[in-house]
């Protein structure tokens, strides 16, 4: 029977690679009986969904624009690089 510590490690690993059949069975058995580890698994999922939302919120925020001075600097940098060649 897995301890909560072992179960939490398997739950975490399952985010990165598929578990073996045996690991999966052990984890399922543990999760059937352990509310705390079920909540832990849900917390991890919410965490990853949250990170994804933070990322897409920035990506879709049309108010965030490449600053004009940065644009100018990039163009200048490329011009000077081409002259140097």
């Amino acid at each position: 029977m897995l301890t909560c510590k072992q179960a939490s490690q398997l739950i975490c690993q399952s985010l990165d690679h598929p578990l073996s059949w045996y690991e999966l069975m052990q984890l399922r058995l543990h999760l059937m009986m352990c509310g705390a580890c079920n909540r832990f698994r849900k917390q991890l999922n919410i965490l990853l969904i949250g990170l994804c939302k933070i990322r897409t919120n920035i990506e879709n925020d049309s108010a965030i624009q490449l600053p004009l001075d940065a644009k100018t600097r990039i163009v200048e940098k490329i011009k000077s690089d081409q002259h140097a060649q």
Partner: peptide, 19 residues
């Protein structure tokens, strides 16, 4: 580069900023 920056600069900047 001017065209790329005008058309995609903001998108690329946001993509980078998000990460």
């Amino acid at each position: 580069v001017n065209d790329w920056l005008n058309e995609h600069g903001d998108y690329l900047y946001r993509f980078a900023l998000a990460r």
